[in-house]
Amino acid sequence: MSRPEHLAPPEIFYNETEAKKYTQNSRIIEIQEQMSERAIELLLLPEDKQSLILDIGCGSGLSGGVLDENGHYWVGMDISTAMLDVALEREVEGDLLLADMGEGCPFKAGAFDGAISISALQWLCNADKSHHKPVQRLYKFFSTLYACLSRSARAVLQFYPENGEQMELVTTQAMKAGFYGGVVVDYPNSTKAKKFFLVLMTGGNMPLPKGLGTEGESSGIDYSRREKIKRQRGKPLKSRREWILEKKERRRRQGKEVRPDSKYTGRKRSGRF
């Protein structure tokens, strides 16, 4: 499989044509949404509460759409104007910034309750310009990401490492920036379904959750779920379902495109796929 990041810099690769193609491809939509769902699960956000999330490499807002569905508010940054234009066209709910993650996350300390990044981080491992040094750009990215997260917040970054060295390069820079954590691999035995999630923690070292489809995943204690329950504090004013349904109704009244309600709406998804 050819790697887009070998073909051109992201702001060139994701031009108008590619941005449209990308956002209309039902296979891509499905995969991006599944990975976003899993990343959100790995964030271990307080249940039934709306959180403020940073989406790094938000593109046209497919990952952001899943944040919406889960009732969160998001700010997205991306380097491609064409991708952001499609996000505007789709009237995404998040607020958008044109920014290069390799230049750092331009936010004040403690701004976000969590961060996700879906299929963007591998782009940072390439030197697209003569002055680009991947190690420095990765370090700048992770250190400024660390700073803009609130205490005990997590960042979950799904990415496509090219090889073991790249995984090592990325993880080393993240740890150097102060994060704890590591890579969770879902379905490691399937070439197609195998996915890498860099799970980064700010509030001390905790055991990493098991990847899906790994040995012991079903028999072992489901650490993430247990902790979620522990972290649950009080009920919100409105139930999650109630609040999402209301929000959808409002968008419908505004004549916007809304996914139909179903018995799954506002239900905590297992994130298993």
């Binding site: 230049e103 331009p106 936010f107 004040k108």
Partner: peptide
Amino acid sequence: MKLLTHNMLTSKCVKGVNVGYP
């Protein structure tokens, strides 16, 4: 740009800028 975003945004990524806020 919403004012929530503005409230979080800095220019500290620019070389030589310390706080860059507000």
